[in-house]
């Protein structure tokens, strides 16, 4: 691990200022992904600003009937919260489908959203990767790309976003609250946080330098049933091949794109009276598999149709 300096933030404004003013600064909360990557020298921050002790770990009801989840809350805190389990079961189910209990106890909500891809070539520093080293090339294009994206990829990057939590949050139409270096608070749909890779896969979000995620805000629980389904190579504690979150009439897919994928074509088809299988087939018309990951097409077709059926069963 490269050397770095460390500060524990006691004030969010000061943390954001420090992030802008200090070269090579990064925020750290749980650190379960960042420290892993720092040990591999894939991440090499010169300065860490520890935001885990800032007063932003609370889960509170909003005036609109939703829930405001502090960015520093642990993944476990969110998954076990009685209000989350009652009103947003898809979120609780998604969180406990990811990582191990030890990781969920440590990992923060914002850290989960900002986790990096698990693409094998991103992790292998002996191979070119545009995400690690812009302009180096993508080894996955012609390589072991069984778990690559089927939606929204580019010739520069075919990696996927691997969060479970974010998939459920997108289906629930969550918003992200941030504090930016000029002291302004802004809120925007989580769906707009992550970028597709395009020519710049190393730029993964629309956050501006120094901008700190302070909370995730859930609208009131949607009408209709909810369900989360995930498929992976082991029954537990393994990265996903594909996942599906259903929240009422909303559908989001995980591990199939560079960001949580809101299946808008499927949603429109469902709203127009299509069967779950027909609706998912509509979405998959826009997919571009690469050969080794062709299996994700029938996998997502069956998984999403099953999840929609399950959610409908629970919503009655």
């Amino acid at each position: 691990m490269k050397a770095f300096t460390y500060e524990r933030a006691s004030d969010a404004q000061a943390a954001v200022r420090s992030a802008v003013e200090t070269p090579g600064a990064r925020f750290i909360a749980g650190g379960t992904n960042l420290l892993d990557l720092m040990k591999l020298e894939i991440e090499q921050p010169q300065h860490l600003i520890d935001v885990s002790q800032l007063p932003m770990a609370a889960i509170e009801p909003t005036a609109e009937g939703g829930l405001r989840i502090g960015a520093a809350a642990s993944n476990s805190q969110v998954a076990v919260d009685a209000r989350v389990r009652a009103g947003y079961p898809v979120l609780s189910e998604a969180i406990v489908a990811g990582g191990s209990p030890q990781l969920r106890n440590k990992a923060s909500v914002a850290g989960n959203l900002l986790q990096r891809t698990r693409c094998a070539y991103f992790y292998d520093t002996s191979k070119p990767c545009n995400k690690r080293q812009p302009g180096a090339g993508c080894s996955a294009l012609e390589g072991l790309n069984r778990n690559a994206a089927i939606f929204g990829a580019s010739p520069a990057c075919i990696a996927t976003h691997t969060s479970d939590m974010a998939v459920a949050l997108v289906a629930l139409e969550a918003r992200v609250e941030t504090l930016n270096p000029s002291g302004d608070v802004r809120a925007f749909p989580l769906l707009e946080l992550h970028r597709l890779p395009g020519e710049t896969p190393h730029v993964e979000t629309h956050l501006i330098p120094g901008e700190l995620i302070t909370a995730v805000v859930l609208p009131p629980p949607p009408k209709g049933g909810q369900a989360y389904r995930k498929v992976r190579d082991r029954a537990s504690y393994a990265g996903g091949l594909a996942s599906v979150a259903v929240a009422g009439g909303n559908l989001a897919l995980g591990m199939v794109a560079h960001k949580p994928w809101r299946a808008v074509d499927a949603e429109a088809a469902l709203a127009a009276g299509a069967s779950p299988a027909e609706a998912v087939a509509k979405e998959l018309q826009g997919a571009s598999p690469l050969g080794r990951n062709d299996f994700k097409i029938p996998l997502v077709a069956r998984l999403a149709a099953a999840a929609i059926g399950e959610a409908n069963g629970r919503g009655v």
Binding site: G31, D50, S52, Q102, N105
Partner: peptide, 15 residues
């Protein structure tokens, strides 16, 4: 009181 992986945790963050 909560179980975590001590390898993925900076000691200075546990002051």
């Amino acid at each position: 009181g909560v179980r975590i992986n001590s390898c993925l945790s900076l000691a200075v963050a546990h002051d």
